[in-house]
Simulated assay, not measured.
Amino acid sequence: MAKTTPVTGSSAHLDLAGALPVVPESTTSRVLVNNDLMRVVQFTFDAGEMLTEHSSPRAVVVQLVTGRMRFTVDGAEHTMGEGDIIYLAPGASHALVAETPCRMTLVMVDTAV
């Protein structure tokens, strides 16, 4: 489990491209913020990498930073490009396939707090 970061403390996460490069034939991730209100995770995917269908009890915002991917939400497929954002309601099923090497930021927000 990732180290908890206090809600009351600010933080900076710099040089993520250098610290979390796209690795050939891999999916990698790094938890940046993890507290009672939210969890922020940066992912990298090589072309062809995928996450199979799953869901989260939290509300989720996904932003594709670089690359292109197909992102499916509740059976509807969306082609995402750099800078695109998808919001997932709590419990929404979702999956993705990276069409090119990608960097994605995911923010999970606890709606129960």
Rank of each mutant, 00 (worst) to 15 (best):
V60W: 01
A98Q: 10
A89T: 14
V7H: 10
A47M: 05
T105G: 08
E82R: 05
H78V: 08
V73W: 00
A112K: 15
A47K: 12
M108Y: 11
G91N: 08
P90Y: 15
D84Y: 08
T72E: 11
S55T: 02
L16A: 02
L14Q: 13
S93F: 03
A2H: 04
S56Q: 09
A59V: 10
M50H: 11
V40L: 12
H78D: 10
S55K: 05
V22M: 02
T4Q: 13
N35S: 10
L51Q: 05
V22R: 02
T105K: 08
E53Y: 00
G67N: 04
G9N: 13
A92Y: 14
A89R: 15
E99P: 10
A89V: 08
P101N: 05
D15R: 12
S56V: 00
V65P: 01
R30T: 09
V61K: 10
R30Y: 06
G9E: 15
T100Y: 09
A112F: 11
A12T: 11
H94W: 06
T111G: 13
E53V: 00
N34W: 04
A17L: 04
G48A: 03
T66L: 09
T105C: 10
Q42H: 06
E77N: 11
S11A: 13
R30P: 03
Q42G: 01
S29R: 05
A17M: 04
H54S: 00
L96W: 09
V61G: 05
A112T: 14
G91I: 07
M38A: 13
R103P: 08
R58H: 12
E77D: 13
P21W: 03
E49T: 09
V23N: 00
L96C: 14
L96A: 13
M38G: 11
A98M: 08
S10P: 06
M80W: 03
K3Y: 05
M69Q: 02
T27E: 00
P24K: 03
S55C: 03
G48W: 02
P24M: 01
M38S: 13
D46L: 03
P90F: 15
A19T: 06
E77R: 13
D110K: 00
F71M: 02
F43K: 04
M1E: 02
V7Y: 06
A12C: 07
T8P: 01
A92D: 15
P101C: 03
S93N: 07
L51A: 06
V22Q: 03
C102K: 06
I85E: 12
R39I: 01
D36H: 12
T79E: 15
M108W: 07
G83P: 07
P24V: 03
H54D: 00
A92N: 14
Q63R: 07
A59D: 15
V60N: 03
R58C: 12
T72Y: 02
L106A: 14
H78K: 15
D74Y: 01
A76E: 14
V33T: 05
S93Y: 04
V60Y: 01
L37K: 14
E49A: 10
S55N: 06
T5P: 06
T8Y: 13
G48K: 05
V60C: 07
P101R: 08
A98L: 09
A12Y: 08
Y87V: 08
T44L: 11
